[in-house]
């Protein structure tokens, strides 16, 4: 039994890592008041970029960096539409997802069926990886898992303990007030959305060069949508995003381990969305919304001199 739990945890962490990257990015973007439904699109373009660059350079880190950059550039398209042109954020985000899915298929044609040229060796943390139980559980992953974990406290610290963080949050809560205080609302939102794109790109890269090590059309298979759900589930908080991502990763992994007991994978598949709906139900009230940290100005385009 203990072995079983350990094995599930061991598998849940890599399964949750692409979700964690995406969610950290989306949390940041939404904290600034911009909902970006284009996560799926940015992730898949990140996935194909990472695979392509890794194949041609033989260096995974270059692939991941390129994926981040391309994800960021795509996010800027959404930023331009929703911040500068003030179009509906839902429409612009959905358009980005469709664009990304189509674009990645087009670019990725040549990579279909290509075996990976290189892959990450698991990074065993010296000294710690040999500890019983804890060693294999926490200290024998690929480097990107550690990067994702390291980003969590950094982002938490920036959000809650620094001037940048309070600026970002104030823009998401009340852009007019922030503006009156001399904050450049547009710049903050652009940066936040760009960061969201970077993270989504890395999440996609994880799928294509670490998790499955192949380019397959449509390989994100809805991961971007789980990220959107997870952002709400995590109540816009990086630490809860970590827990949520591993929880959702664990649920995915459990689907096949519980099957012999007669538990339908479809039931487990629903869980992330049921959790999200529960959070949405709980947070329906105005007072509750404030308490769980939903950004007040989420989805509202900001226009100076308005009102």
């Amino acid at each position: 039994m203990w072995d079983f739990i350990l094995l599930v945890l061991r598998a849940a962490i890599p399964a949750g890592t692409p979700l964690l990257f995406g969610t950290l990015g989306e949390v940041t973007a939404e904290r600034s008041g911009v909902l970006n439904l284009g996560v799926e699109g940015m992730m898949i373009v990140g996935a194909v970029t990472a695979f392509g660059v890794t194949q041609s350079t033989g260096n995974i880190w270059l692939g991941v960096a390129a994926a981040a950059l391309v994800g960021g550039i795509l996010a800027l398209v959404h930023a331009f539409a929703s911040i500068t042109l003030r179009v509906n954020q839902v429409v612009s985000g959905l358009a980005l997802t469709m664009l990304g899915l189509g674009l990645s298929g087009l670019v990725g044609k040549r990579y279909i069926g290509m075996p990976p040229r290189t892959r990450f060796a698991p990074l065993a943390v010296p000294g710690l990886s040999d500890l019983p139980i804890i060693g294999p559980l926490f200290f024998r992953y690929d480097p990107l898992v550690y990067l994702a974990i390291a980003l969590v406290p950094v982002l938490w610290f920036i959000l809650y303990k620094t001037r940048w963080g309070i600026t970002l949050r104030s823009v998401g809560e009340s852009p007019a007030t922030a503006d009156a205080l001399g904050v450049n609302v547009f710049r903050v939102r652009y940066l936040a959305v760009f960061f969201g794109g970077l993270m989504a790109g890395v999440g996609g890269a994880y799928l294509s060069v670490v998790y499955t090590t192949a380019w397959i059309e449509g390989m994100t298979a809805g991961a971007g949508w789980i990220v959107i759900a997870l952002t709400i589930f995590a109540m816009w908080d990086p630490v809860r995003a970590l827990l949520g991502a591993y929880l959702f990763g664990g649920v995915r992994v459990l689907q096949y381990r519980l099957q012999p007991l007669g538990i339908s994978p479809n039931l487990l598949n629903m869980l992330p969305f049921i959790f999200t709906i529960l959070v949405l139900l709980v947070s329906a009230g105005e007072a509750m919304r404030k308490r769980i940290g939903a950004p007040e100005a989420l989805m509202q385009p900001y226009m100076r001199e308005e009102r």
């Binding site: 079983f4 094995l7 598998a11 399964a15 799928l207 998790y211 499955t212 192949a214 397959i216 449509g218 390989m219 298979a221 991961a223 995915r252 992994v253 689907q255 096949y256 381990r257 099957q259 012999p260 994978p265 479809n266 598949n269």
Partner: peptide, 23 residues
């Protein structure tokens, strides 16, 4: 036998394969 309930899902296929190896 483990069922994916999908024709095409690389992530699910990996998780099912690892579950079988674990068993």
């Amino acid at each position: 036998v483990r069922w994916l309930f999908a024709w095409y899902d690389p992530a699910k296929a990996r998780e099912a394969a690892e579950a079988l190896i674990a068993a």
